[in-house]
């Protein structure tokens, strides 16, 4: 599904990603861990097509197609979804109207008419129930004044609405209380199937107890320096990153 080859990216001339290689297949869950500032969110943004970052070298393939020239919206239409570490507040656009626009725009890209209002309402009801989101919430301005946890839950609600092929969850767990974490993880697990893939960026083992990864990667200084199974996450939780940094330095 996703294949990243020797990816280098920089911002304002400063190199951040320095040769990432990663392959994610349908049906898999990958976790990416790594110290602050190592480039995890940058990688996620670059995959989603954020033009703030310049890809200086390497390629990203989605289902075999090089997505270099695709805009963020085209990537979304091809099934990429990014749950933001810091969801953006958009005053004046309600969650509902935002979702309607997003869904109808991606339908339009597939040559489909707008979703009938009745179906839209049904979908919204279904997905908001899945994530135990209060309906009142949906008429509020997108993310405006949402608590940290509410923002994260709202991101997964959007994921549930859009049903992406490749979902990248950037620190979705941070900010969630224990109950919310369970609800969100449960929601993600319900959306998971053999045809889609999930990349989870996290600092903690806890979310991985709910959504069990097939692979765990450690990103350090713009490179994946170690990959392993879910046991690697446990090891990191116990020992921290120093040993990895040392290994990488050798």
């Amino acid at each position: 599904m996703l294949k990243i080859k020797d990816l280098h990216a920089s911002v304002e001339g400063k190199g951040i990603l320095k040769g990432i290689n990663l392959e994610v297949n349908a049906g898999e869950v990958h976790a990416i861990m790594g110290p602050n500032g190592s480039g995890k969110s940058t990688l996620a943004s670059v995959i989603a097509g954020n033009e703030t970052y310049e890809v200086t070298k390497g390629d990203i393939f989605l289902n075999g197609e090089n997505i270099e020239d695709l805009s963020p919206e085209e990537r979304a239409h091809n099934g990429v979804f990014l749950s933001f570490q810091y969801p953006v507040e958009i005053p004046g656009v309600s969650v509902t109207n935002f979702m309607k626009t997003a869904i109808n725009e991606s339908r339009k890209s597939r040559g489909l008419d707008d979703m009938p209002a009745k179906d839209m309402l049904k979908l919204i009801r279904e997905k908001s129930e899945l994530l135990e989101i209060d309906r009142k919430f949906l008429s509020r301005s997108l993310n405006e004044g949402f608590s940290g946890g509410e923002k994260k839950r709202n991101e997964i609600f959007q994921m549930a609405m859009l049903e992406p092929k490749l979902a990248i969850l950037d620190e979705t767990d941070s900010g969630l209380d224990i109950d919310a974490l369970r609800i969100v993880a449960n929601g993600v697990n319900k959306l998971k199937n053999k045809d889609n893939a999930i990349v989870i960026i996290t600092h903690y083992q806890r979310l991985l107890e709910y959504i069990v990864p097939d692979f765990v990667h450690v990103l350090h200084n713009g490179k994946i320096v170690k990959s392993g199974t879910k046991d690697l996450a446990l090891e990191l939780e116990e020992k921290g990153y120093d040993w990895i940094k040392q290994e990488a330095a050798v």
Binding site: S71, R75, V80, F81, V93, S141, Q158, L162
Partner: peptide, 21 residues
């Protein structure tokens, strides 16, 4: 970028932000 990443084309995303403003 946030709006675009949800599949809303740039032109519409800009319009939505302006409308919201």
């Amino acid at each position: 970028f946030y709006l675009q990443s949800r599949g809303i084309p740039k032109k519409e995303a800009r319009a939505l932000l302006m409308y919201a403003f």
